[in-house]
Computed example of a mutant assay.
Amino acid sequence: MNQDILFADIQHWDREKQAVSFPAQQAGALITCWVSLAWLQQQEAQTFSSEAEILAAFAASRYDLEELAEALIEDEAFNADGDIEIG
Rank of each mutant, 00 (worst) to 15 (best):
N2F: 05
N2A: 02
Q3C: 00
I5Q: 07
L6E: 12
F7R: 06
A8E: 13
I10D: 14
I10C: 02
Q11I: 00
H12L: 11
H12Y: 11
W13T: 01
W13C: 06
W13N: 08
D14E: 09
D14G: 00
R15G: 01
A19V: 01
F22C: 04
A24N: 05
Q25N: 10
Q26M: 10
A27F: 10
A27S: 12
G28A: 09
A29N: 14
I31L: 03
T32G: 07
C33K: 06
W34L: 07
V35R: 09
S36I: 02
L40P: 10
Q41P: 06
Q42C: 04
Q42G: 08
E44R: 15
A45S: 11
F48T: 01
S49F: 13
S50V: 08
E51G: 00
E53P: 09
I54E: 02
L55P: 12
L55Y: 03
A57Y: 07
F58G: 11
S61F: 01
S61N: 15
S61I: 00
R62E: 13
E67F: 05
E67I: 13
L68Y: 10
A69S: 15
E70F: 05
L72G: 11
I73W: 14
D75C: 11
A77R: 15
A80K: 13
D81F: 13
D81H: 11
I84W: 10
E85I: 06
G87D: 03
G87Y: 10
